[in-house]
């Protein structure tokens, strides 16, 4: 009798405890095939496992409307929280369904939206600080600097604003051109062409001290132009942002392309899980954007 009672009690306890312990979180993205996204999801899943969650990763293979459909499905299923990795402006229909059901949505480098409880991302302002200050220090606070920016795209525009401020703060640094390259073919080719024109217009060695690019592609284009003009020996310093594989390779080889900034994708994923945990524990979320630190990449650590 005792044994039977114990068993019943055990079963009841297990049955009662199960719905409380295993939180269900759905991660929905159209971009799982892209390398960066995979790192976000790995970081998220690792942290979620520590927290004992049931995680369902859903990839819609590039189909944004299907993201809305899958949000509707997991809302019906009754998950505890939803994590998205897609521009919230495109999935407003899904966000309002989740909001109606009282299910929190957290952005994993997704973008800000009134219906996204928290968005975890990298700080574009801070990334631009890293490279623009690197340039200023590297050229001893004086010289002519070429900037590659792209103001039509807000995440890149903020980087340009910071570089403007940093270079403007040095009386002996002059920004001789602020170029917005044509990005329709990726941005490398047109940046290279524009840089070639600038090199031709400034033939004196030392007349260009540095190239600051708001992302890696123009930096690579500028590097190619400098190499093609045979002017890689003049000590022109190039920096980019994002530290994509091509940029890392160029930096590691020790040429003019000296620095870029890497986002910590795995940490963004892990911090997203932490933010979900805070929301599920009922914490009052005041700051709706959470930044994860980025890292300056130079020849010293480009191979890592």
């Amino acid at each position: 009798m005792t044994l039977r009672k114990t068993l019943i009690g055990f079963a009841a306890a297990a049955g009662m405890a199960a719905p409380l312990s295993a939180q269900e979180v759905a991660v929905i993205t159209p971009y799982l095939a892209q390398p960066g996204t995979q790192f976000y999801v790995d970081g998220f899943s690792a942290r979620a496992e520590e927290l004992g969650w049931d995680v369902n990763v859903i990839d819609t293979a590039g189909d944004v409307a299907a993201v809305i459909s899958r949000i509707e499905d997991v809302v019906t299923q009754g998950v505890d929280a939803i994590v998205i990795n897609v521009d919230p402006a495109q999935i407003g229909a899904g966000l309002s369904v989740a909001a109606d059901a009282g299910i929190p949505v957290v952005g994993m480098d997704a973008g800000s939206d009134p219906l996204v409880a928290v968005n975890v991302t990298s700080n574009g302002y801070a990334m631009a600080v890293e490279t623009s200050v690197y340039v200023a220090n590297r050229i001893g606070g004086e010289g002519n600097v070429v900037m590659f920016t792209f103001d039509p795209f807000p995440p890149v525009q903020v980087r340009g604003v910071i570089a403007d401020a940093v270079f403007g703060n040095y009386p002996d640094i002059e920004v001789i051109d602020r170029i917005t390259p044509d990005v329709s073919d990726g941005g490398i080719a047109d940046s290279r062409a524009q840089m070639e024109a600038l090199l031709a217009a400034n033939p004196e060695p030392g007349s260009i001290s540095a190239v600051w690019a708001a992302w890696d592609q123009p930096a690579i284009g500028a590097l190619q132009a400098i190499q093609a003009a045979g002017r890689e020996g003049e000590g022109i310093v190039i920096t980019g942002i994002d530290a994509n594989p091509q940029a890392r390779e160029a930096i590691a080889s020790g040429g003019n392309f000296e620095a870029s900034v890497a986002q910590d994708f795995e940490q963004i994923g892990a911090t997203t899980a932490d933010s979900v945990a805070r929301i599920l524990s009922g914490a009052d979320i005041v700051q709706r954007v959470v930044y994860v630190p980025t890292r300056l990449i130079t020849a010293a650590n480009a191979d890592e």
């Binding site: 990763v57 859903i58 990839d59 819609t60 293979a61 499905d73 019906t76 299923q77």
Partner: peptide
């Protein structure tokens, strides 16, 4: 199929 398999938490690639 899409709706039900998502709710049953079947992996998206297995779903395809």
């Amino acid at each position: 199929l899409d709706n039900g398999l998502t709710q049953m938490r079947v992996d998206s690639y297995v779903r395809e």
